[in-house]
Amino acid sequence: MTDAALLVRLLADTAGGDQRAFRELYQATSSHLFGVLVRILERRDWAEEALQDCYLRVWQKADQYAAEKGAPLTWMQTIARYRALDLLRMKRPEVSIPDEDEAPPMTFADGDALNPEVRATEQEGIGRLSNCLDELAPEPRKSVLLAYYEGYTHPELAVVMKAPLGTVKSWVRRGLSQLRECLDA
């Protein structure tokens, strides 16, 4: 059984109230969703809160998942993303939410814990990475950002970017290769 087929089955069983299936669903997907939430919220405590809310919503709305409309992990990521954005608006109303095509801000998750020397070195690395990302063509850049910032899988990228799976894989591979070359220069 493929991962997606397993998740579809677990969601269906969860919709029927099966707590064991829900636990398996959580174990199979929580680390991925937590990574997405941490990247969006930039705070571990907020990400933990959002993850709990996300799974509560999955438990309540599992019967609304429709396999023909998308992959189960994509559906769950959407729930997590909306919860994260709601939490950002609620806890930091002065923060504007970036547009879909904007690059994510590259900041420290726990910047206060770093000493000034380490922070300066890290900031220089982040600046170099940002400059290297700017040198990428639009498709590889967006593919890399969605894969590593938003946690999209290759099949999900193919859907979002409306491109064949092989093309998306090439964009990610090429983008990462060009980033590596740029950072090594």
Rank of each mutant, 00 (worst) to 15 (best):
L7C: 02
L11A: 06
A15P: 04
G16Y: 01
G17E: 05
Q19A: 15
R20V: 14
S30D: 10
L37N: 05
R39S: 12
L41N: 09
R43T: 03
R44Q: 13
A47S: 09
A47W: 02
A50I: 08
Q52Y: 06
D53F: 00
C54R: 00
Y55F: 15
Y55N: 02
Q60C: 06
Q60T: 09
K61Q: 14
A62K: 08
A62H: 08
D63A: 13
A66E: 13
A67W: 01
E68F: 03
K69S: 09
G70K: 03
T74V: 07
M76V: 02
T78Y: 02
I79N: 07
A80W: 02
R81C: 04
R83K: 15
D86K: 01
L87C: 04
L88K: 00
M90F: 07
K91E: 12
R92F: 14
E94S: 15
V95F: 10
S96W: 02
I97H: 03
D99T: 09
E100G: 01
F108V: 04
D110W: 08
L114K: 01
N115H: 12
P116R: 12
E122Q: 10
E122D: 10
E124S: 11
R128Y: 07
S130D: 13
E135R: 14
L136K: 05
L136M: 08
A137P: 00
A137M: 09
K142A: 12
L145I: 15
Y148T: 09
Y148R: 10
Y149W: 15
E150K: 05
G151W: 05
G151A: 09
L157G: 02
M161K: 05
K162G: 10
A163L: 07
L165G: 08
G175A: 11
L176D: 06
S177H: 14
S177G: 11
C182S: 10
A185T: 12
